[in-house]
Amino acid sequence: MEKKVNQKAWFFVLPVVLLVAFSALIPLMTVVNYSVQDTFGNNAFFWAGTDWFTDILRSERFHSALWRQFLFSGIILAIEVPLGIAIALAMPRRGLWVPVCLVLMALPLLIPWNVVGTIWQVFARVDIGLLGHTLANLGIDFNYTQDPLDAWITVVVMDVWHWTSLVVLLCYAGLQSIPDAYYQAARIDGASKWAIFRYIQLPKLHRVLLIAVLLRFMDSFMIYTEPFVVTGGGPGSATTFLSIDLVKMAIGQFDLGRAAAFSIIYFLIILLVSWAFYTVMTGKTKESDR
């Protein structure tokens, strides 16, 4: 659709800009200011230059948190996206039970994040949890508060439980938009299931999948509440992801300068990755428009 050039459209956007600027720009500027100073409380600030940045960029703690974060996001995407596609494909295209299924699937998405944490904290406990207790009865030594691997498994399974539905719903919506005629034509040609998936369904899912991957990457990259409630970042610092580490630094230790420098580095990573995603997304639409 050809759009008109109209600079007055800025007036329509102004409320949004003011509102978001108030909540985004002022805090961001403050973070930048803090990041070059040191404070000992009482609003007394001392110039520290770029020491905090050097400090963080070379600290083992930051490197391992960053590495854990990328590993976590990678695992999450590798599990949730294929699983979500598979479930969306397995869902019938229509039927009496489809709305019921979708509503049940959407349920985990609307649970407050700390309640999600609480649910899994309880569910996986060896003494009172269904999962932990069953595993213990099966003779599996499972203890997420002691064993780092078990803690990781718990957090990953929890995230799969929490967010796979988003991928399912997005993909299902994408599949719904494929006209029946396509499938009928495929049946006449005797196409295999794989061929239908590869040449009819996947191209249609392309766009929704990009949205799903983008949302899942971003949200898993800033995950805080759920693992914090379940493991508190432990055992040791096995599940201390970037946000958990940051909050620990800013609010727990009140280390303002260091936390601010951390925030800026975090933000630059997010900015780079989301810019890359955004360019790919909009670049693709430009191609298809032509």
């Binding site: 403050t30 940051l246 933000f267 989301s274």
Partner: peptide, 19 residues
């Protein structure tokens, strides 16, 4: 606007308190 959807709330928590 979209980057704000992608920014971790943890980054903003402390300045928000003061703001």
């Amino acid at each position: 606007l979209l980057t704000n959807r992608m920014a971790p709330p943890a980054v903003f928590a402390l300045p928000f308190f003061q703001l």
